[in-house]
Design a protein around this nucleic acid. Structure first.
Lengths: 205, 205
DNA sequence: TTGTTTTATTGATTTGGGTTAAGGAAAAGC
DNA sequence: GCTTTTCCTTAACCCAAATCAATAAAACAA
């Protein structure tokens, strides 16, 4: 059966998140899902459009970013087994200030806005899932802004290196710089300074 | 009856938010609420404590801020008819990185963590309210970081002036500066520059 | 392989905001 | 009222990162 497990990953994810979810609720949910593939370099969402889907990344990698006077400011990366969405646009039904673009060949499982409202109506427990998702997104966003306010650029970079080493492997450095809110040149200098420090430290022995 | 309308404001707010809320659900909700007053300069939440209440501001004004090497970085202000909470700490049950302090004599209506979980269990529709609240907080947070990324300090200040003029009236300028992420001196210079511009522009005529 | 494009580094220069310091204005307290 | 504290402004100097510019190194394609 070819379709066996088409939605396996998101199903596992959900049952993990919420142990009380029933097989029946899942069937309804499943009926509202669809699959989309995005080629490297293509858009999942263009700036100015209303984000009409919540997408669960089966595999691949995407970036969400603002474009401000010609330069892109990356807010976040979405890798496999995470949600990918401009949730603010999705919820408010206002046009997105962001764009979402695939950095690798990507496959997502999607539910659209009407589908999700439908789900909330048919399956009241889904409100609890929706609540949890919104809460987690909020917590994540708080952690991010907290970092931006309380930490210097240097330690932010260190955090990326130690906490999300896969990022360093999978995206070019100038995108990391954009994500950190600095220019590629500035990041290059930070790295140079650090490796000098290491050399000096090593020379102590 | 002295207690008539003790929770009137929050009740109105809720019924406005969610027209389907029943009088019975409200009674349960009401039974979980309590009132607290905070004197000017006192804390609603201290850094390092777990935020154990969601507070609805009946009247007054508070600030939520980080303290980073001696200086405070204000994230937001809470005025009457808004929620006041370190919701990230409240949800995760982790100690808060922020503190919340009253800038004016303040009265809040509160529900504590256990109370809210209780409410979610007793009144399933409350999950929908909780979802809406989390969603709105998330949207708000997105707008904020969007501004921080896409806009310069100058236009951020202009936005405060035009969109939240009450803020300018009610808090000293150095707090506005902190909120904008700059020093009081820098804000003072921005204002000076702007009024010079205005004078120059006026001189054209 | 070689040529082409993309990405990273390094240097010189500029700049916006931080820091320090001092004086003035406004509010609060007595 | 006067005094004290709190708040705002202005100026001089400093610094981290942006910008501009050139080169080097990788990645990719033909």
């Amino acid at each position: 059966m070819e379709h066996q497990g088409k939605y396996q990953k998101i199903k596992t994810y959900y049952f993990g998140l919420l142990s009380t979810l029933t097989e029946d609720s899942w069937k309804i949910f499943e009926s509202l899902l669809s699959i989309r593939t995005i080629k490297k370099g293509d858009y999942l969402l263009r700036e100015g459009k209303i984000c009409n889907h919540v997408s669960f990344v089966n595999h691949g990698l995407l970036k969400i970013y603002y474009e401000v006077d010609g330069k892109e400011k990356i807010i976040a990366f979405f890798k496999e087994l995470t949600y990918c969405c401009d949730y603010a646009s999705f919820l408010t039904r206002e046009s997105a200030e962001t764009a979402i673009k695939a950095l690798e060949e990507t496959e997502v499982v999607e539910i659209n806005y009407e589908g999700l409202q439908h789900l909330y109506n048919l399956v009241p427990e889904a409100n609890m899932i929706g609540r949890r998702i919104a809460e987690n997104l909020f917590i994540e966003k708080c952690r991010n802004s907290s970092n931006n306010v309380t930490e210097g650029v240097e330690s932010k970079y260190q955090k990326v290196v130690t906490e999300t080493p896969w990022l360093i492997q999978r995206v070019p450095q100038y995108m990391i710089a954009s994500y950190l809110g600095i220019t590629p040149e500035a990041l290059s200098r930070i790295k140079a300074r650090n490796s000098k420090k290491t050399v000096v430290a090593a020379a102590q022995y």
